[in-house]
Each structure stands twice: as C-alpha cells, then as structure tokens.
C-alpha cells in the first residue's frame, strides 16, 4: 500500500507537484491499481528471464558520419524563453 508520504515523495521524484491535501486522494486511486498489480505475485516466475525486447536483435549501430543539425532558429522556435541563442530557464537552486 502506498502511503500519503510516499505519494508526495514519488511526486517529487516525478516532478509533479502534489498538494498535501490531494495526496490522500491520490493514494486511494493509486492503491486500487497497485492492488490489481499485486496479482502478479501469484505467478511463479522462478527461473524465468525478463523480456525487455520482443525481437531478438543485437548490435545495431550507425557509422560515425556527420548528418545535418537543426538550424538554431528551429531549435528555439518552440520557446519564448531565449537569450542570445541560449534557452533560458529559472535558476537551479
């Protein structure tokens, strides 16, 4: 069961601001889903390898050959927050 505190912690990890007042409500909804996920415990997976990829492919590489970059204006076209070609963001700390 996920607790109210855990919801707030996970919210921080995921950078989703959760109001303390809403955390309880979140916890209830998330717990109903987690409870459903709990049925996975019934499955015996001893000795079973995880499947990360369905296709058994390996060693996919590209050659070290330069391709075109975007124009600076196309990089900055989707932001209003720009300064001298840089993207401007709020301070870190």
């Amino acid at each position: 069961m996920i607790t109210k505190d855990e919801v707030e912690h996970v919210g921080w990890l995921a950078r989703i601001e959760i109001d303390s007042a809403d955390a309880e409500g979140y916890a209830t909804k998330l717990n109903s889903v987690l409870e459903y996920f709990g049925q996975l415990d019934e499955v015996d997976t001893d000795g079973v390898a995880p499947t990360y990829h369905v296709a058994d492919i390996m060693n996919v590489f590209r050659d070290d050959v330069v391709t075109d970059s975007l124009e600076q204006k196309d990089v900055l076209t989707n932001t209003d927050s720009e300064q001298d070609g840089y993207i401007k963001a709020p301070r870190i700390m």
């Binding site: 950078r15 301070r91 870190i92």
Partner: peptide, 19 residues
C-alpha cells in the same frame, strides 16, 4: 524547451508545477 511553463522559484519547482 517547448510547451507552456508555470513559474516557480527555481527550475525544479517550475518543472513540478508545469507538469
């Protein structure tokens, strides 16, 4: 880099609020 931005006192708070 794109999309709306909801202000916050620092980058992490901005990101959390925007999301």
């Amino acid at each position: 880099r794109y999309g709306p931005r909801v202000d916050g006192e620092n980058w992490h708070v901005m990101a959390s609020r925007t999301r």
